[in-house]
Amino acid sequence: MLALIVGNGALPRAVAAAQDVPPLVCALAGHAPDGLTPDITFRVEHLGSLLRRLKRAGVTRICLCGKVDRPDISLKRLDWRTALMLPRMLKALKLGDDGALRIVIALFEAGGFAVEAAHEAAPDLLPPAGVLTAAPLSDSAEADARAGDAAIAAMGRADLGQACLVRHGAVLATETETGTDALIVGQGQAGAVLYKAPKPDQDRRADLPTIGPDTARNAVAAGLSGLVIEAGGVMVLDLPVVQDILDAAGLFLWVRERPV
């Protein structure tokens, strides 16, 4: 049986909808997935008890999906099972995103669960490679993509961000903890390209980059020329809707295979 450990956004609903057998949906308190009602809501201070509950329910597989803000841990609220995990949990809170997620994954694995990536549970979220829109690539798209590769590599070393804005081979801005939509909306860089890819060597079982209709609408509103995402490395929610939005505005979507 599959359990989804979910945060905010539309990704949990997409993963749940892809399952033949409805998964058990477990939401972290204060995080509400879009259009999906949790079966269980839990506090991070009760994670140990949650794992025991999942085992008793017959859960064998876990999928982490959705955006989760770093929680504040109240020592007074800890149950004894979670208290045993406290040193690793505190270490996770001090690390960057990928480092923290590796520890979270390790906690679930130590509890006897197989951790499955969202794109493994819902393979159709990964679009095929190629230009998926009517608009052709811009003349600088290849140079922009190469600049994006370098920027993501540098961001990966700092364990922060999975997207950047590039124009004519120059990086204009990089993603912070505020996310991709804030990057697009906050910059006003008309004619730029949004480049999005996983950080090198990140554990792809959690936090794989995602775009969707909101990303497309924001790109149009900001006057971007197109989007470049890594083939096999970025999930797309509601791909037909994304294509329609971009086609109507003349933007391109390039699902690019990273050069070897």
Rank of each mutant, 00 (worst) to 15 (best):
P127E: 07
L75N: 12
L47T: 03
A134H: 12
R52S: 11
V185S: 08
V236H: 02
G148H: 01
A3M: 04
V25G: 02
L93D: 07
A221L: 06
A121Q: 08
A121N: 03
V234G: 04
F42P: 00
L194V: 12
P136H: 11
D144P: 02
T180D: 09
I184Q: 05
V6N: 08
R56I: 03
G169P: 02
K94R: 15
L90A: 03
I40T: 06
D203M: 06
R157G: 05
E177H: 15
G148E: 09
E230T: 13
H168N: 12
T176S: 08
A222N: 04
V59H: 02
A32W: 01
V193N: 06
H168P: 00
V15M: 12
G156C: 06
I245R: 01
L36T: 08
L51S: 00
L246H: 05
L194Q: 11
L126G: 01
G179T: 03
K55N: 14
L90K: 02
G7M: 14
A10V: 11
P33V: 12
G191M: 07
P123E: 08
L84P: 00
P128I: 10
G186H: 14
R167H: 14
V193L: 13
K76T: 05
G112T: 11
D39S: 14
G161K: 10
T41D: 13
G179C: 01
G250Q: 08
P213W: 07
K199G: 03
K91E: 14
I5P: 04
